[in-house]
Design a protein around this nucleic acid. Sequence first.
DNA 1: TCGCGACTTTGCGCGAACGCAAACAGTCGG
DNA 2: CCGACTGTTTGCGTTCGCGCAAAGTCGCGA
Lengths: 233, 233
Amino acid sequence: MPPLDRSLIAGLPAFAGLPGDQLDAILARARSAHFARDAEIFGQDEDATAFHLLLSGHVRVVRTSPEGHQVIARYIAEGELFGIAMAMGRTTYPASAIAAADCVVLTWPNAAWPDLQARVPAFGASAWQTIGTRLQETQATVMEMATEQVEQRIARAVLRLVQQSGRKTPEGIEIDFPITRQDIAEMTGTTLHTVSRLLSGWEQQGLVRGGRQKVTVVDPHALMLIAENRRKG
Amino acid sequence: MPPLDRSLIAGLPAFAGLPGDQLDAILARARSAHFARDAEIFGQDEDATAFHLLLSGHVRVVRTSPEGHQVIARYIAEGELFGIAMAMGRTTYPASAIAAADCVVLTWPNAAWPDLQARVPAFGASAWQTIGTRLQETQATVMEMATEQVEQRIARAVLRLVQQSGRKTPEGIEIDFPITRQDIAEMTGTTLHTVSRLLSGWEQQGLVRGGRQKVTVVDPHALMLIAENRRKG
DNA sequence: TCGCGACTTTGCGCGAACGCAAACAGTCGG
DNA sequence: CCGACTGTTTGCGTTCGCGCAAAGTCGCGA
């Protein structure tokens, strides 16, 4: 199998400015793969045999409880590492990863991890940073769920999505992958009914525009006010 | 200042079996400090200038929202690292650390981190493991908050506390540091009223025994059933 | 082009849990 | 030993958001 081209990762913020031989070291044991929308990249409780980097597309990270409830832990954006569970001493994936849109994914076998950390210090630093940010964000989520109303949580979730994956359109900023009301409900710990009701309300006020598997934010500022629970301030 | 004695940390699981010179390397730049109950070890949003290891006692990690709401992210048990925010690329602490009981804490300046990781591989591995576990637990908390009822969450919180810091007594297993109903409320995202009501109910059924800043679990099995939402099964 | 399935909207009733308020203990300090 | 303070219990009214149910709509595939 021919080695992958440096240009695949040279543009990523985490690896920008790295010498060519380090880029090659990163790519040496990597394989690239394509996943169609809704395909499973790895499954919860499977043996964690590899870790991944998302080159393009969007990935949904989902945890399923023993009772069958699903929670969307996060969406992975382009250039992010994911499925690095084993690096942290775990042997199985704590969640499933599903392609939320068509994806291109770089994959390394677990065994490549120590070598990569040793030969490319920036890689290890980037991984630490990723985990740190994620822990921080997850704890912020806990705070939200503990202290905020459903409406605020949904406003925040939508804002986060457009911030992370927004695309400008004539009508506003829209989330550039298909997302259902059910998905938003599973991000915020509520039901699709409540999400639908609130989005409808916002649409009537002109803050957002809805659509099938689509949300467009027309007035981000007003949404931020809702997220902070001060409607007109 | 005389160097600290190896015996301080030789007994900790994370460092067990380490050669003496590595123990010395760990202790070389460490300082030990005592904190009285309710003392603040570090404060949220302060510059993260050091990281810590709890030798004895219990530490409460608290996040405060801009609106003043508090959430207890976790309790730190003996032998655990905490306040390693900076290791993950952050410059300020994302939460406060308060002594939940009298504590002895080992403290290193941030600058010691890279050196320590290089000279004591087990230290780096232990830190990864700690962060991984914490991320995992925090995500589990999100799931609970999203999908479970208040009663289940409180049952789980109490079980986790006795499991982590339980002490056997004639009446049952009690949490061996002072904890208020308010604290439990802040762990589970509810109010002290609701906690009080539920604990009272359980006490009448003989599952637990309450007290001022005290909880004793009499029937852990029954509590587990509540946590799994199947009362008599 | 038509039909079906997936997604969304909306109404209605209910119940869990909150918020407020007041009374009730332990504990510690003087 | 007493008083004040901090923590706990309990009642009551209210509300937020769920659960169920049914209708509506969009888009894809046959």
